[in-house]
């Protein structure tokens, strides 16, 4: 068990406290900004505070991860340390799964219980007394109170952009796996090519997703405020889109590291972690495609 004897315990680090301050400032700024917007106050210090905090966070991310990369390349990390990173990333992804579970749970609850009850069906159909005559359909093209929550005139069809996006993301999972195989065999040329292609596919996905949102907002009246269909639709696809953005950024960082000659065929956990994250985001999309768009 020789690898137990070299566990790397880092000395003092300034990054955690910078990260804390950065997050606190960002969140305080965001909160002030939102509150000022809602109250209709013209002058708000919120945006400024928010962006200062965000700068802090960005500085911290570069510094902290840069530090870890440097340590890794100095050879400070034992195989046991590598396992700590693997467990850390595994459980982080599990926490992300549970985050999405909350939103999927909300969707299923609305579709299979609360929605029908509001329409007068099922065990708690008495809820229909709130808005007598309300008929439940999914997609919900008619909300109980259209004055407060104007219903959309239509929803996004699964077989247009979403289908193309599905193909894009699934393909990107394959290209990323090809990149990984190339890395394992130390074939740097194909590695760069496949990885760059993966980032491009991710970016293409995001562009199409934005296009879909514009279409929804301008032509269909499908917005965050258009009742529960719009709420769940944008919450699920929006958080997924945010994750694709983060994943694409991480993969871009990996691409830069590959171009700088980082990683070897044996040692490349940074790359693997990025790949795990990307595949996770891909699986979430498949769930979305089935439960949000198709069914």
């Amino acid at each position: 068990m020789t690898n137990h004897e070299q566990y790397y315990v880092p000395a003092q680090s300034k990054w955690p406290i910078i990260a804390t301050l950065g997050l606190l400032i960002t969140f305080y700024g965001l909160g002030s900004w939102l509150n000022d917007l809602k109250a209709g106050r013209d002058e708000s210090s919120g945006p400024l505070i928010f962006f200062v905090g965000a700068l802090f966070v960005a500085y911290m991310l570069f510094g902290w991860f840069g530090n870890v990369v440097k340590e890794s390349r100095t050879g400070l990390y034992s195989p046991q340390m590598d396992r700590s990173f693997r467990w850390g990333m595994t459980w982080f992804i599990f926490s992300e799964v549970m985050f999405f579970t909350a939103f999927f749970g909300a969707l299923f609850y609305i579709r299979y219980w609360a929605g029908p009850w509001l329409g007068g069906e099922g065990d708690k159909g008495i809820a229909n007394m709130l808005w007598p005559g309300f008929e439940y359909t999914w997609p919900m093209l008619d909300t109980p109170d259209p004055k407060q929550f104007p219903a959309p005139s239509g929803v996004i069809s699964a077989w247009g952009l979403p289908l193309i996006n599905t193909i894009l993301l699934v393909t990107s999972s394959f290209t990323l796996t090809f990149a990984h195989h190339a890395l394992r065999k130390d074939k740097r040329g194909p590695l760069k090519l496949w990885l760059a292609l993966t980032v491009l596919l991710g970016a293409a996905f995001l562009v199409l997703q934005i296009e879909e949102y514009i279409h929804a907002y301008t032509e269909l009246g499908l917005t965050l405020g258009s009742g529960i269909y719009g709420a769940t639709f944008f919450m699920l696809t929006g958080f997924h889109g945010a994750h694709v953005t983060i994943g694409a950024l991480i993969l871009t960082v990996m691409l830069v590291r590959v171009l700088r000659g980082h990683f070897t065929g044996e040692q490349h956990f940074g790359f693997e972690a990025a790949a795990w994250y990307w595949h996770f985001v891909d699986v979430v999309w498949l769930m979305l495609f089935v439960f949000v768009y198709v069914l």
Partner: peptide, 28 residues
Amino acid sequence: PVLAGVVTMMLMDIHFGTSFFSAAGGGD
């Protein structure tokens, strides 16, 4: 993360006009 999810839905209902917890928009 589920707690994070529920407070995020609150934030959306308060500031972004969603109706997760409002039956008037089909939520509950």
